[in-house]
Write a protein that binds this DNA or RNA. Sequence first.
DNA 1: ACCTAACCTGACCGGCTGGTCATGTTAGGT
DNA 2: ACCTAACATGACCAGCCGGTCAGGTTAGGT
Lengths: 211, 211
Amino acid sequence: MSERTATPGPRADMVRNRRLLIGAATEAFAECGVDVSMGEIAQRAGVAKGTVFRHFASKEDLLAAITLQLLDQLIGSANRLLEADDATEALREFMTAGVEMLAADRAFCEVVGRPSLQSSEVRKAIARLADVVEVLTARAREQGAIRSDITGTDIVLLLGGIHQTAAPVLDTQPQIWRRYLELAFDGLTTTNARELPHRPPDRLQLTDPLG
Amino acid sequence: MSERTATPGPRADMVRNRRLLIGAATEAFAECGVDVSMGEIAQRAGVAKGTVFRHFASKEDLLAAITLQLLDQLIGSANRLLEADDATEALREFMTAGVEMLAADRAFCEVVGRPSLQSSEVRKAIARLADVVEVLTARAREQGAIRSDITGTDIVLLLGGIHQTAAPVLDTQPQIWRRYLELAFDGLTTTNARELPHRPPDRLQLTDPLG
DNA sequence: ACCTAACCTGACCGGCTGGTCATGTTAGGT
DNA sequence: ACCTAACATGACCAGCCGGTCAGGTTAGGT
């Protein structure tokens, strides 16, 4: 019924394989980093290598899809925290979520830490994240708990730094990033310090203006 | 003259090639990271690929040699700064030297940030560095400018974190790591903050007790 | 001048990678 | 029940990697 000659639509096994693939790729990238092979991902998903390339034209495409999914989660967190009463605590919670995500995902660290691995869509998502965090930071700043010379871009960059501080000992002390998050936060809330040297970072990802 | 039947000794062109090789490898690793190929290094040195393997049995060996050379520079800096009058300023200078070195060398970042890339000799050198920095930190702590719950290992780990904070924008703002160094230092000198969560990191590189 | 051991060279090897494609299978409409 | 387009498959490809080695070259002692 409904329309004549039918709507082709995606086949059932295709959507199933797509779900399996995204799950497997998410896990594999998280555990092994961006250098994990497409063959390994296919194996984890229980499909043949050719199937991976039917769903994603290239490894870059797949990596971008997985990364975008994670960035969207972070952007969602930040947006939700905009509604919180205590803006300073909200900023701390956002940073906790961000560093936690980095600590759990090797490929994510590598992509956000190296612009050369970022597709234009990933760059756009990072810019969107920076925009939301800018508001989050401004609210905490108005509340008087965050020093005046810290921008949202500073906060986003700090996520990678805090994680990297803990990364060399993550194997033996998987929660130690909380220590360095708190240390960084103490730096952010120092109000009697003199202004930081060098101008704040540019708005994120304005490098190579294509896209 | 001198001894009978002569001392074989290294040939002149060999020491020349070795110097060229170390120079080329240092540059190549710094610019391209640990994934630079042995062929590329040979080309930069102006020798054939086989010559590289005559001087260094494997890529790991070469990487370890280059890394050790850099770690020794840092250890030297730290030792020299032990003699300084102002211990707090000495600590800041050491951290400046450390972050500057990381910012200038991609492979060095990757090696110190990922224990799986460290040979046992590199691990030992890092432990030696941590020992010196422990003294440097203790002196600054006694001087009263550094909070009491910060260890030398914290400082060494922070070097990687400070650099990583700036890394995504290093291309466009090559000096911005100074901003984050100062921010971290403000966190270190906050004396009225409550104690940091989680115990300090273990003494560095006690993972897998072989070597 | 000559000799030899030390050294350099670059073709070569197996293994792994991202990516392709002819062939086989199957979902799902009729 | 059957048909076909959509999809899955895995053998296959070229390219690059770390590493090897037989053979040519040369430093440097005599």
